[in-house]
């Protein structure tokens, strides 16, 4: 390939040349830069009107893009960011549900986001309940252009599927993973039958075993007050955080027989295969 890993400090080219989320634009401080980390490097992120500036600490400016309410940057030469057309739909409320620092690798967080089987045990009484633990068969594929993993026809019984829910329902999910550390969930909207709420997990890869998980909401809900929407997402995420921080090893194992997947883990199996195809080495064990 002629690509020298030394130019990227040992980081694989796919990871090096992607856009990565480095903060929620609305939540950047009004004055001064915020210090954070990207792929193990210290960086600063500063709001500039509707744009932003990202710099290596004590070094040069990095590429910057503001999209979907977040600031994105890259250590390399990034191509286009993935499409999220729902962001531009006029009747949606777009907001950052919550951002949590988590001591885990970026792919562990994505794999957990794609996982339905934990709902009855980790999100008991909200996204699942122990009386309905079975995961029905669903479809998973890596897109023909290799650019994303898609899981569809996912059905699960949820006692309280969203902040606006009034009772238990069988919900239909569809997942897209258009970026190794970003996953998007399309979920039946309780307010607008036939349409989907969109919930995205944008993971900032601070290091191989430290992340900031941002839950982005693009939802069809004009009524639920903002604090209640945020509280719902926070409540769910604080249930996931101790699980993620107690997964060993912290980096996602891509070698065979590291874990014992079952049918319900089809999405995880496809996601791991896709990471191997991309040549991702950041945050994984090969």
């Amino acid at each position: 390939m002629g690509f020298k890993m030394t130019e990227t400090g040992g980081i694989d080219p796919d990871t090096w040349n992607r856009w990565h989320v480095v903060g929620c634009h609305d939540e950047l401080p009004d004055d001064g830069a915020r210090a954070t980390r990207l792929l193990g490097r210290a960086i600063t992120v500063e709001r500039r009107g509707s744009g932003a500036e990202v710099r290596l600490t004590g070094g040069g400016a990095l590429p910057v893009k503001v999209a979907y309410g977040y600031v994105w940057s890259s250590l390399g030469t990034p191509g286009p960011l993935f499409e999220l057309p729902e962001h531009a739909e006029a009747d949606r409320r777009n907001l950052n549900g919550c951002s949590f620092f988590v001591r885990t690798s970026p792919p562990r967080a994505i794999e957990n986001f794609l996982d339905m089987a934990h709902f009855p045990f980790v999100h008991t009484g909200i996204l699942g309940e122990e009386a309905h633990p079975d995961v029905k068969d669903y479809d998973v594929a890596i897109s023909t252009d290799g650019r994303e993993v898609v899981a569809s026809n996912c059905h699960f019984y949820q006692p309280k599927a969203a902040a606006a829910s009034t009772g238990g329902v069988d919900v239909t999910y569809r997942y897209r993973v258009p970026h190794p550390w970003c996953a998007i969930l399309y979920k039946d909207s309780p307010a607008k039958p036939g349409r989907s709420d969109v919930i995205a997990l944008f993971v900032q890869p601070c290091g191989e075993e430290e992340i900031v998980a941002n839950l982005a909401l693009f939802i069809l809900d004009d009524d639920t007050p903002l604090p209640a929407l945020r509280r719902f997402q926070q409540q769910i995420f604080v249930q996931d955080k101790p699980i993620l921080e107690n997964q060993m090893p912290r980096r996602l194992p891509l070698y065979p027989r590291a874990d014992s997947p079952v049918r319900a883990d089809k999405a995880s199996i496809a996601y791991r295969r896709w990471l191997r195809q991309l040549g991702t080495s950041f945050g994984v064990l090969s």
């Binding site: 089987a117 934990h118 009855p120 045990f121 980790v122 122990e130 633990p133 101790p242 699980i243 107690n246 997964q247 060993m248 090893p249 194992p253 590291a258 874990d259 014992s260 997947p261 079952v262």
Partner: peptide, 27 residues
Amino acid sequence: ENRCPHRGVRLSLGVNLGDRLMCRYHG
């Protein structure tokens, strides 16, 4: 070993059911 063979979550987070240990993550 303090690791569920399924997804690696520490079994010490789990539930001692008296005759079986239940993993916290997927039961």
